[in-house]
Design a protein around this nucleic acid. Sequence first.
DNA 1: GCCGTTTTCGGCCCGACTGTTTTCAGTCG
Length: 574
Amino acid sequence: MNNRQIADMFDRVADMLAIRGDNFHRVLAYRKASETLRALSQPVADIAATGSLTDLPNIGKTLAEKIDEMLETGDLAFYHRVAADVPPELVELLRVEGLGPKKVKLVYDKLGVVTMDDLETAARAGKLRDLPGMGQRSEEKILANLEALKQHGDDRFPLGDAWPLAQQILTELETLPGVTQTAVGGSLRRMCETIGDIDLLVCASAEFAPAIMDHFVNLPLVESISGHGPTKSRVTLLNGIGVDLRVLPAENWGTLLSYFTGSKAHNVKLRERARQRGLSLNEYDFTRDDGGDPILCATEEAVYATLDLPYIAPPLREDRGEIEAAKQGRLPDLIEQNDIIADLHMHSTWSDGKATILEMARAAQARGLHYIVISDHSRSLGIANGLSIEQLREQAAEIKSADAEMGDDFRILHGTEMEIKADGTLDYPDDVLAELDFVIASLHVSLSQTRDQVMKRVFAALDNPHVDMLAHPTGRLIPDRPGADLDMERVFMAALSTRTILEINANPRRLDLTDVNARRAAQLGVKIAINCDAHAPDHFDFLHYGVATAQRAWLTPNNVVNTWPLEKLLRFIN
DNA sequence: GCCGTTTTCGGCCCGACTGTTTTCAGTCG
């Protein structure tokens, strides 16, 4: 079993234990262990092999043994023991909003409900309303939420879908009386690749809050309201995405922002640190155990300062070592968007782009870039109008004239995004590749090949001396396609030894490498590029998603080749 | 079940909102 499968198993066991009514903190231990495994940037099997599983946070003796068991047998006996008490199918019921472990146990014990269909049948028959603690309203709500789940599912939303939506709502809320500041919070502010719901925060004094909330829950794109109070409201939009809004005054802004940015695990660490100092941290303030005046924080900097920590940027707040690093003064000097001076991967009308080479160059220059690589698709990708060898050579002439047109302050390099074909061969011969300034290799087809097959293809590209960069290495698409089954550790080692750059593709449907993989690659010394893969001038807007992913990977400007002057990049690839 | 400036046992974050209550449990974030 791999990291994700073991993490999934721990999550499933946690849900089953919660339904069974086990100690809450025992349940939490399984969930925390799951998070540790998901954040791990190397195979847990490698760590198990050295016997150092318990060095990982949240993995103690018991869970280490369970991980060993799963690695050896592919199964977990404990899971089957719990399953004797709690049918594993019950876990599915937790996806229904408003149903937690207690109520799932209730409907199972009293009505024998196991599946969603059972639940719907029971609700329609009016059997839920007579259960203790439930009534007609609960029954109606469960039916409505079952229906909503069928309609929208409860999948997470791609960052690229949620971000513009959040900005749109905030822009509207900013116009309301009394609103002095707004912000996104939660996983959206941390720029996770997918988000469960949108957290919005508004700064306004209490007398304005009710009107702000009323406006919010009555926005035209609201489908239903699931909570509506003076400081907190929650709605579901027509596309099924949930949006939470919190309103607090300026004196609480820093603690509010910190609290609702999370992650949960990061917050727990902050609160533990507060307790060590005789303080208790919540979204309003720090209260003192000795009963003294609470400490108010109008900024997040003040929150961290109260805990004797430097400011920690939101993309780092995943409890992946950032608090320990902050304590020791070794937080990374994170890459910022204005460090980026080049884009090495884009398309023009020569293949499937929407703009000419010159238009792309001017758009790039307008955004502060100093050089670009035009990298149209290669001949075998017919669907994207890939270039024949003859077309590629014709294109060289146009690149040259466009480059001259742009003047001395901007350079256009001639590249290609070359297919790594399904049979493992490359789409252009070496002598053609030798004519180009920059060669990108990509997987687009036959991504569901076996690990052996697809790794052979990647090695063929990495080992070719003309290939400078591997673009969107796994080929995944969020949320539809998981991507090729690569052994990333071996990809990184090969990239390192062949001096091949690996890409963080900034398109929010890709974000490939992932944050976790990019962090591991950079740790090993692999150089990373952040590229928009622009097919039109406005796709350069994707850059902030790519930079945020790089920040989540703890990358500094030195890890990222797009921060380098052209001469340095050319030295590296040659 | 994990973890240790609270240190091998006894903590483990906590507040808003809802619905069913008549003072609170459950859910959610």
